[in-house]
């Protein structure tokens, strides 16, 4: 059984400042979990223990817990009707419906969102639709893909509704062949060939060597591109856009490393630094792609990873 409270209420109950309660929560002196609507929950037993510690009479205790069977008997006796039992949770967009239900539709999110109003997009409406179970309508809509998941709405929300999490969950529920634009194709390509644009290993190695020679001739005498150098301090990932379309842009980082006399390397395979699974809502692919980078770090005995963006 959980005791739900707001920071201000608990502060009044204990006669301390709100910041004290927040500090207790952060330091785990008070073992509470943050929930929807800036409310917190802790076990009643923890609450009672805290009250005992400070000599305060608890507002609730374990004996006040209602037994479901007992409640059924009482309800049936009073109304003559069998108790109505709700079914299993069917809304899959929220971990807990109260995450959406604390939304007051105040519109602070919509005021903060630069794309609210375009094609009927409104964060309030999306949250409300999710609470009401209009899942298919939301998954089919283009709203989650026009939203940039910038988090401005969440930062503004006075009730802590996790709007970005909802948006990303909606993206992840789109069938993969219906993900707009090239981002899912990029993920599939990355899983198959090690980078989003399918640049072959030999071409990549040749390009890096060639650019290294150019840089040596331009500004950095003696520079060579350190491909697959074991024991380098840093492993650097590459945004595939650069070798594909803007190769000279890679030299900016290289010049800084040269000036700083840094020890660094790039892996010959799985060097992609852009994890489009983050945007397409594909956690499995994200995990695989991150895992490959970790494998490279271990294989090349690097100390640290630099994702240069």
């Amino acid at each position: 059984m959980m005791y739900e409270f707001k920071v201000a209420d608990l502060a009044e109950e204990f006669g301390v400042h709100r910041n004290t309660i927040r500090n207790w929560i952060n330091s785990r002196t008070l073992p509470a979990q943050e929930g929807p609507g800036k409310r917190y929950a802790m076990k009643v037993s923890d609450y009672v223990a805290l009250c005992d510690k400070f000599g305060i009479i608890p507002k609730v205790n374990m004996e006040m817990a209602v037994e479901i069977e007992e409640l059924k008997t009482i309800t049936t006796a009073q109304t003559g009707q069998p108790i109505l039992q709700l079914g299993e949770k069917t809304n899959t967009l929220f971990d807990d419906p109260s995450w959406g239900d604390v939304c007051l539709t105040c519109g602070t999110c919509a005021s903060a969102c630069p794309i609210a109003g375009v094609n009927g997009l409104d964060p309030r409406k999306i949250v409300r639709m999710a609470v009401l179970g209009l899942e298919e309508e939301l998954i089919e809509s283009s709203w989650p893909w026009k939203c940039t998941m910038c988090g401005k709405c969440e930062e503004a929300c006075p009730m802590n509704v996790e709007i970005v999490k909802l948006m990303r969950r909606l993206r992840s529920r789109r069938p993969r062949n219906l993900v707009p634009g090239p981002i899912h194709k990029g993920v599939a390509m990355c899983l198959e060939r090690g980078n989003n644009l399918g640049i072959p290993k030999d071409d990549f190695a040749f390009l890096l060597q060639d650019l290294g020679e150019e840089l040596a001739a331009e500004t950095c005498p003696g520079f060579t591109t350190p491909l697959e150098v074991r024991g380098s301090r840093l492993l650097i990932t590459v945004n595939s856009k650069e070798p594909f379309a803007e190769p000279d842009d890679m030299k900016w980082w290289w010049k800084i490393f040269y000036a700083a006399n840094e020890s660094w390397t790039v892996s010959a395979d799985n060097w992609e630094g852009v994890n489009w699974g983050l945007f397409s809502g594909d956690d499995e692919a994200m995990k695989t792609i991150v895992g490959r980078i970790v494998d490279n770090l271990e294989r090349l005995h690097c100390e640290a990873l630099l994702l240069p963006e």
Partner: peptide, 25 residues
């Protein structure tokens, strides 16, 4: 923390919604 997004985040640079992306920006 209060900064406005450029309009191309979350993969929007690659999405087929260019007019919305520009309006966003």
């Amino acid at each position: 923390n209060g900064n406005y997004c450029c309009g191309a985040g979350g993969g929007a640079w690659a999405m087929p919604y260019a007019p919305e992306r520009v309006f966003y920006g």
